[in-house]
C-alpha cells in the first residue's frame, strides 16, 4: 500500500459533531454572530464557547467582540488556516465516502 488511507487526514479538531457544525457554518459566511450560531447549532452558550475555544486555540477561528449600536456582538469567523483545514477535512471525507483505493 503506497498511500495512506484518507482517514489519517481527518483532522481530529474538526471531526466532532459540534465543531464540524461550527466550521461548516462559518465556511459559508464571512463571520457569524455567536448568538445566532448557538441557536443554529442547537447547543448551549457554554458548550459552544468550549468548542470555539478549541478551534480558536488551533488557529482555525477568530473571535471578535464589539458593539453594533448599543447591541453587543461577538463575531466568529474562519481564519485562512481554518478555511484550509476545513477544505482539507472535506476533501478527506469525500475521499472516504466516494471510495478510497
Amino acid at each position: 500500500m503506497s498511500e495512506k488511507h484518507p482517514r489519517h487526514r481527518l483532522d481530529e479538531i474538526i471531526h466532532t459533531p459540534v465543531r464540524l457544525s461550527v466550521m461548516a457554518a462559518l465556511s459559508a459566511a464571512e463571520a457569524l454572530d455567536f448568538r445566532h450560531l448557538r441557536d443554529f447549532v442547537e447547543v448551549s452558550d457554554s458548550l459552544l464557547s468550549k468548542h470555539v475555544a478549541v478551534l480558536e486555540e488551533a488557529g482555525y477561528v477568530t473571535v471578535e467582540k464589539g458593539f453594533e449600536g448599543k447591541r453587543p456582538r461577538t463575531w466568529l469567523s474562519l481564519t485562512d488556516t481554518g478555511r484550509k483545514a476545513y477544505d482539507d477535512y472535506i476533501a478527506a471525507l469525500r475521499s472516504i465516502t466516494e471510495g478510497w483505493s
Binding site: 481527518l10 471531526h15 466532532t16 459533531p17 457544525s21 461548516a24 459559508a28 459566511a29 471525507l93 472516504i96
Partner: peptide, 22 residues
C-alpha cells in the same frame, strides 16, 4: 474516536449546514 462521527454522516451534515447557512 473514529466511530464518534461516521464519515458519510459527517459529509452529509457539513454539506447540509454549509448550504443552509449559505
Amino acid at each position: 474516536n473514529e466511530n464518534a462521527l461516521d464519515p458519510a454522516k459527517a459529509m452529509a451534515e457539513a454539506t447540509r449546514i454549509a448550504r443552509t447557512v449559505g
